[in-house]
Simulated assay, not measured.
Amino acid sequence: MNQNYNYNKERHGCVTAWLVLIILGNSLTALLYLLANDRIRESAPDASPLMIYLLGLLALANAVFAGMLLQWKKIGFWGFTVTGICALIINININFGIVQSLIGLVGVGVLFAILQITKDGKSAWQNLE
C-alpha cells in the first residue's frame, strides 16, 4: 500500500463482535483448562495433565491471535488455523470423538467466513496486512 494514501480501515460490527467473543471465550476456556485440570480429566480420562495444559495454552493463543486480527494482522488468522490443527491432534490422541475433535477446525472456517463480511465494499479479510 502506498504510504501517501490515507486509508482508514474499517470492519463490519459483526466481525468486531465475533473477534471480541473469540477473545472472551478463549480466555475463559484457557482459565478453565489451566485451573480446573482435574475436573476436565474426569470427563477425558485418557488425557494427561500435560495435554489439558496444552489445550489451555492453545485457547490462550487463540485469544492472542484474535487480538492480532483486531489489529489487522493476517498472521492472527494463520495462528488460529495452526492452533486448530494442534487441538485436533491432541483431541484425537485423548480419544475425543472425531466430531468433537473437528470443532476447532469448524471454528477456523466460521472465522474465515466472518472475515468475508464487507463494509463499504471491502471485507475485513481484504484489509488484513
Score class of each variant (00 low, 15 high):
101 S>T: 06
29 T>A: 12
9 K>E: 02
124 A>Q: 11
13 G>E: 06
98 I>P: 08
90 I>A: 03
2 N>R: 08
92 I>V: 11
99 V>F: 03
73 K>P: 06
117 I>N: 09
52 I>K: 02
48 S>P: 10
125 W>F: 15
111 L>H: 07
40 I>F: 09
12 H>V: 02
66 A>S: 04
76 G>R: 07
3 Q>W: 01
68 M>Q: 13
118 T>A: 15
32 L>F: 12
33 Y>W: 08
47 A>S: 08
6 N>T: 14
57 L>V: 02
47 A>C: 05
30 A>S: 15
63 A>E: 00
12 H>L: 07
62 N>G: 10
11 R>E: 08
55 L>W: 01
62 N>T: 02
13 G>I: 00
64 V>S: 03
95 N>R: 11
32 L>G: 12
80 F>H: 10
86 C>L: 11
1 M>Q: 12
121 G>H: 06
7 Y>A: 09
66 A>C: 02
123 S>E: 12
108 V>R: 04
53 Y>R: 13
107 G>L: 04
85 I>H: 00
12 H>I: 04
24 L>S: 10
60 L>E: 07
6 N>M: 13
127 N>C: 08
61 A>F: 09
10 E>K: 13
61 A>Y: 07
13 G>Y: 00
5 Y>K: 15
95 N>H: 13
26 N>Q: 06
84 G>L: 03
70 L>T: 07
128 L>C: 09
27 S>G: 14
99 V>W: 01
86 C>W: 01
106 V>T: 00
106 V>M: 06
111 L>N: 06
129 E>M: 13
74 K>C: 05
63 A>S: 11
61 A>R: 05
45 P>V: 04
75 I>V: 15
125 W>R: 13
16 T>F: 02
91 N>F: 03
52 I>C: 03
48 S>Y: 10
128 L>E: 09
38 D>Q: 12
116 Q>F: 04
20 V>G: 00
90 I>Y: 01
20 V>W: 04
31 L>I: 13
72 W>M: 07
77 F>W: 07
38 D>C: 04
32 L>Y: 11
83 T>D: 02
7 Y>I: 12
71 Q>P: 06
111 L>W: 05
127 N>E: 11
57 L>N: 08
65 F>S: 05
26 N>V: 01
62 N>P: 04
20 V>L: 08
46 D>V: 02
95 N>Y: 08
99 V>N: 00
99 V>G: 00
9 K>A: 11
59 A>Y: 05
109 G>R: 04
59 A>G: 04
40 I>L: 15
71 Q>M: 14
83 T>A: 03
44 A>Y: 11
127 N>S: 14
122 K>T: 15
42 E>Y: 06
76 G>I: 04
119 K>H: 11
87 A>F: 03
24 L>Q: 08
45 P>Q: 09
49 P>Y: 13
109 G>T: 05
23 I>F: 01
68 M>P: 05
28 L>C: 11
99 V>K: 00
121 G>Q: 06
113 A>V: 09
118 T>Q: 15
24 L>W: 02
